[in-house]
């Protein structure tokens, strides 16, 4: 097993022991191993270097490696926990963990806050929301007049920015999503519950002697 593990570690930089990863996340050991099957497939789709590049991430999401999408770019940046421009396996598991149906609400709120805090200032600022909104409206070919976008932003900040300082802080965001729970829908991926049945081949490539479920 030692030889196999070191070979895996060599081929997949950032690969951590599945038992350790399972102990730090909502995933079982079997689920971490099933995620590794998925990871192997995505990380070898363009360059077989054991890491997920932005291009490979885009290819997995859009079946098109050149597709640019501001929201997808932001998710890639947040998955790239070590800021290396690539997602290694431990980043992949820890990031997907936030989307697990059993992950804490606090983690989901925290991740969603970072998603919209494009410039990492610790606040969701009006111009960040506007930038994302305009980019996505263009991509979706939905035409809205500038005035309409401003009305939507005015209403949103009137509701969310309780202290009226022009930006949404973490506690205002918590309060806002509690009043608008549909905003957290994108933070839960139900497929993560069935990941072992989606990628059953993990059983043949298991690194652990006894699969803990």
């Amino acid at each position: 097993m030692g030889c196999f593990s070191s070979k895996v570690a060599r081929q997949f930089p950032g690969h951590e022991d599945p038992v350790a990863l399972a102990s730090q996340t909502a995933f079982s050991v079997s689920e971490v191993e099933a995620l590794f099957e998925l990871y192997k497939s995505i990380s070898s789709s363009v360059v077989d270097d054991g890491l997920i590049s932005k291009e490979e991430f885009q290819l997995a999401l859009f079946k098109n490696r050149k597709k640019e999408n501001l929201f997808a770019n932001r998710i890639f940046e947040l998955f790239d926990v070590k800021h290396k421009g690539v997602i290694d396996f431990s980043d992949f598991v820890r990031s997907l963990n936030v989307f697990h149906p059993n992950a804490s609400l606090e983690d989901k709120i925290d991740f969603s806050f970072k998603l919209y805090d494009l410039d990492n200032t610790g606040f969701i600022e009006r111009q960040e929301v506007k930038q994302m909104l305009i980019a996505l409206l263009c991509e979706s070919e939905m035409k809205l007049a500038d005035e309409t976008v401003e009305i939507i932003l005015d209403k949103t900040f009137l509701d969310a920015d309780v202290n009226r300082d022009g930006k949404i802080d973490k506690s205002e965001w918590e309060n806002f999503v509690c009043r608008n729970p549909s905003l957290l829908k994108i933070m839960t991926l139900h497929y993560l519950r069935d990941i072992t049945t989606t990628f059953p081949s993990f059983v043949f490539n298991s690194e652990v002697d006894e699969i803990a479920t």
Partner: peptide, 26 residues
């Protein structure tokens, strides 16, 4: 639903153009 009746974040979710489910080949 009219866009103007949504808050900005709802509109972003609705126009994001993909789902992370796609990662699983779904």
């Amino acid at each position: 639903v009219k866009p103007v009746s949504m808050n900005a974040f709802e509109l972003i979710s609705k126009t994001q153009g993909f789902s992370l489910d796609n990662l699983f080949g779904k």
